[in-house]
Write a protein that binds this DNA or RNA. Structure first.
Lengths: 209, 209
DNA sequence: CCTCTTCTCCACCCGCGGGTCCAGGTGCGG
DNA sequence: CCGCACCTGGACCCGCGGGTGGAGAAGAGG
C-alpha cells in the first residue's frame, strides 16, 4: 500500500505504524498526488491511504486519475474534513473508503483490509451525511418490488427498464423471445405491473435500470 | 451479537462459524424480527447481523425499531438482494453495514467488528449503487429535450411518463385518441424517441413525470 | 390576403406487446 | 422418489402502439 499526506509529521508515524500491522506492507510514502501516481506506476499497489488536502495535486483529483488509469487500486480517504463536498467528491471520484482523523489505528487497518477485499468502510458520521443527501433526493420511495421475484425476472425487468424490446432482451440473455414473454407475464402478475411503460417506471424507481 | 435469518440452513452454520471468531460472541440466533427484538431486550447486544427477507417482521422494519428503541445496537445487513429499495430502505432505517451473500467469512467478521467500532462497511456494488443514486439525483438530465416541442406535446409526453395509455391521455386532455397519436408521432420525431418505453425514460429524466 | 404554426381529427395498416394455455428439463428438498 | 420452483419453449389471439397520408380550423404575423 501507499500512504499519502503532505504533512511529514502525520505521514511518517502513520506509515511506520501501519508497516507493523500484519498483512500490510507500506511500499511508499507520498507528499502529494503526483508522488502517489509515480508510486503506483512503479510497482503493484492495491491500496492507497490518501489525505485530501495536498499541494500540487489534491486527493480527489488523484483518486479520479487512479480510478481511470488503475481501477484495481483501492483508495481510502483519511482526512480531518467531513463536509458534503469532500465526501461526495471523493466517493464520486471512486474512493473505496472514507475515514476522519479521529479514527484509531484499528479503524484504519480495518478499512485498509476491507478496501483490499473490495469492501468499503465509512466513518459513521460520513455514512450519516451520505444518507442524508440521498434521502433528501428521494422523497417518494414508491411501492417496493415484491421479494418473491426470481433473479431471472429481476434481470428481465432491468432490461425492460433500459428500453429494450422483447427481441433485444432475448438476444441479450441468449434465450428465445417466447421465454422472455413468459418471464414478463410472471413478473407483471407478481409485481402488479400493468404494461410496459409501468414496468419501466418501476424499474427506474427501484434502481434496476 | 445476534444472528437473524429465517432459513435455518443459513442461520445455524453462520452463527457457528461466527462464534469461532475471536472477539465475537453469538448470544442468540433469530428467525424473524420479533425474535431479534426479544433477544436485544433480554441482554446487552452490540451488533445484529440481519437478513432482510424474514417472515412476521422483516429486516428493514426490525432495523427501524432497533434504531428507535436501542440506538446503541449496530445493525449489519446480510442479504442476497442489492436493489436500491433494499439498500436505501435498510440504510435509511439505520443499518450500519450492508453485505451481499457472496461475502466471505472474513468480510462478514470484518463488517461486524467495524460496526461495533462505529464504522460502516458496504459491499462494493452496494456503495456503487448508493453513489449512483446520489449522482443520479444531483445533476441535470443527460440528453435534454429539444426546445421546439410545442406545449401540447410536452403535456402529452408528461402523461406518457405517468404510464397512461393513449385512451387515458385523450380523456385527460378532452381530445380524441387520434389527436393523441398525432402529437405522439410529432414529438417522437422531434425528440428522437423510438417507442413508448423510451418516452417514459426521457419524461422521467427530464422531470416531466 | 396569405402563410405559417399549432391543434384538432380521420382512415388504414401492421408489428409488437401482453394474455392464455400448455409442456419439457433441471435441481433441490422432503 | 416425488413434488416443487425455476427456466425454458411453443402456439394462438387480439388489442394497442406507431407510421403514413391527408385535412380542416384558428391565431400570429408579414
Amino acid at each position: 500500500m501507499v500512504v499519502a499526506d503532505d504533512q511529514a509529521a502525520v505521514r511518517e508515524p502513520l506509515a511506520a505504524v501501519l508497516a507493523l500491522a500484519e498483512g500490510i506492507e507500506v511500499v511508499a510514502a507520498a507528499a502529494n498526488g503526483t508522488e502517489v501516481l509515480a508510486a503506483v506506476a512503479a510497482g503493484p499497489v492495491d491500496v492507497v491511504l490518501m489525505d485530501l488536502r495536498m499541494p500540487v495535486m489534491d486527493g480527489i483529483e488523484t483518486t479520479r486519475r487512479l480510478a481511470g488509469e488503475h481501477p484495481e487500486v483501492a483508495v481510502v480517504v483519511l482526512t480531518t474534513f467531513a463536509d458534503d463536498d469532500s465526501i461526495l467528491g471523493a466517493l464520486g471520484a471512486g474512493a473505496r473508503g472514507y475515514l476522519t482523523k479521529n479514527a484509531g489505528r484499528q479503524d484504519i487497518t480495518r478499512a485498509i483490509r476491507a478496501a483490499a477485499a473490495g469492501q468499503s468502510v465509512l466513518d459513521r458520521e460520513v455514512q450519516d451525511r451520505l444518507l442524508a443527501t440521498v434521502r433528501f433526493k428521494t422523497p417518494a420511495p414508491a411501492q417496493p418490488l415484491p421479494e418473491d421475484l426470481t433473479p431471472r425476472e429481476r434481470e428481465v425487468l432491468a432490461l425492460i427498464g433500459q428500453g429494450l424490446p422483447n427481441r433485444g432482451i432475448a438476444e441479450r440473455l441468449f434465450i428465445s423471445e417466447a421465454t422472455v414473454k413468459t418471464h414478463i407475464n410472471n413478473l407483471f402478475a407478481k409485481a402488479g405491473i400493468r404494461d410496459r411503460p409501468d414496468a419501466v417506471r418501476r424499474a427506474i424507481a427501484s434502481g434496476l435500470a
